[in-house]
Every structure is written in C-alpha cells, then in structure tokens.
C-alpha cells in the first residue's frame, strides 16, 4: 500500500483550535506540504498574524514568530534582509493584512521583499467575533455592519490581489480558493509557485486564498463553501494576476 495522505512533517502534532469546517486547517496543511516537498522546513521562518491564525506558531513545525496586528510583512522584511537564503513566509488574515496592516503589505510589495505572503480572505473578522473586515462584501451582514455593508457608509471591499499586482515589486500574485478539491489543488500549486519564485529571488509573492468562516457567517460548513463560491468568487475572481517566471 502506498500512502496517499498523511500529516506533513512541517506541521506539529497539535490539534487545530479552528471551528468545525473552517478552512484555515486546509490552508495550513497546503503550506506545510509545500514546505515538505521543497525541503524547506529547516530553512523556513514563518510569521503569524493577529486573528484566528494567531496560534499558527503552535502548528507549523519550523521557526515561527508571532507578529503585532498587521506588522508581519515588516517583521518578515527584517528577517529576510538579514538571512537572505532562508525562506520567509507570513500567514495573514484579511483584517490583519488589508486593514491594520495595509501600509506594511503594500510597502513590502513595493520594495520587492523576497517573501511569500499567505493571505487568507474570509471577508470577516473571525477571532474578535464577526466584525466587518476590509474585504466584507457589499450587503454582507456582520456585527459592525448589522444592516449589511453599504458602499455609502463603509465603502468598498478591498481587492488586495489586484492592488498588489500593480506593484512593480510583486513577482507573483495569485488568488485561489479552497471550497472544493479542484481548487484546493490549484491553491497548493500556487503556493508552490510562490515559494519557488521567492527562492529564485524574483520579488514579493502573495497567494490570496478565499476561505470560509462558518461560525461568523452563521452558516453550516457545507453551506459556507457554497456561500464562498456564489458570493465571494464573483467579486474576487480567481487566477494568477502577476507572474514573473522562474528562468
């Protein structure tokens, strides 16, 4: 018998604290599998956000740091500049990356920092209890947009992949989703590509991954996958937005 699926070495043997059906766990596994397959575990340094993934340092089996809200790209910059041969990644949610950390992410991209950003977009603040995120969709009800997000009041949802694809410093920008097996496989490919482009030193890389938050969306895990497919993908189209090919 051949092993088809087992726990990757780049994940510690700790139980995830995530809610049932939350796709953070899938994304953790994909990142870990990519680190394994590229033999990067021992040279990888990861930075966790503030938000649901704040405890990711308990899960990834490589050197890890916990950042202040939104500052992961700045911390990653400090590390990568001093240790240019290591693989440096941040793992950030939408509130962390696109709201409080908007400055840090844009400038890390503009400087062409050779890091990989795993950006988990679930259109809501998870850990703090379902408040409006910069990526919350128009009309979406959250605890701080209880009548649905209105463009007149709260403005428009941030399209981070499109924004960062504009930056000359970005070498790889891709948006993927994890709502079904085919898209999970595409997400893994995108993470692999981002890490390889980082290794090749071509510039800033980011994979924006559409993810579910069944608890704060008020949906069951399966309904949440459908909600993502029918509501998020039309506004956040999937695909590669910027690719500097590795020669």
């Amino acid at each position: 018998m051949k092993v088809v699926a087992k726990r990757p070495e780049s994940l510690k043997d700790n139980k995830f604290h995530y809610c049932p059906g939350c796709t953070h766990g899938i994304i953790h596994r994909l990142v870990a599998e990519c680190l394994d397959e590229l033999s990067l575990r021992e040279s990888a340094i990861g930075i966790c956000p503030v938000g649901c993934a704040v405890l990711a340092y308990d899960y990834f089996n490589c050197d890890m740091l916990e950042a202040a809200h939104g500052r992961a790209p700045a911390i990653a910059t400090g590390i990568k500049r001093l240790l240019p041969d290591r693989t440096v990644f941040t793992y950030q949610g939408d509130g962390d990356l696109a709201s409080i950390g908007m400055g840090e992410i844009i400038h890390a991209s503009l400087r062409g920092e050779k890091i990989t950003v795993i950006f988990v977009n679930n259109a809501i603040y998870g850990m703090t209890g379902g408040q409006m995120a910069p990526t919350t969709l128009l009309g979406q009800v959250t605890t701080t947009s209880p009548y649905g997000r209105k463009k007149e009041w709260e403005g428009y949802p941030a399209k981070m992949a499109e924004l960062l694809a504009q930056s000359e410093g970005s070498a790889y920008i891709c948006r993927t989703s994890v709502h079904n097996p085919a898209n999970i496989l595409k997400t893994k490919k995108a993470i692999m590509k981002a890490l390889k482009i980082q290794q090749a030193g071509l510039g800033f890389t980011m994979v924006e991954i559409l993810s579910t938050c069944p608890t704060n969306w008020g949906l069951g895990p399966l309904e949440a996958l459908e909600w993502l497919e029918y509501n998020m993908i039309p506004y956040y189209p999937l695909g590669e937005l910027k690719v500097k090919e590795v020669e």
Binding site: A5, K6, G21, T23, H24, R29, P181
Partner: peptide, 10 residues
C-alpha cells in the same frame, strides 16, 4: 484533501 483537521490518512 478536504479535511481541515488532518484526521484522515489514506
């Protein structure tokens, strides 16, 4: 592949 909690080995 779909399991968010890595409880399945195949």
């Amino acid at each position: 592949l779909m399991c968010p909690d890595l409880i399945i080995e195949v």
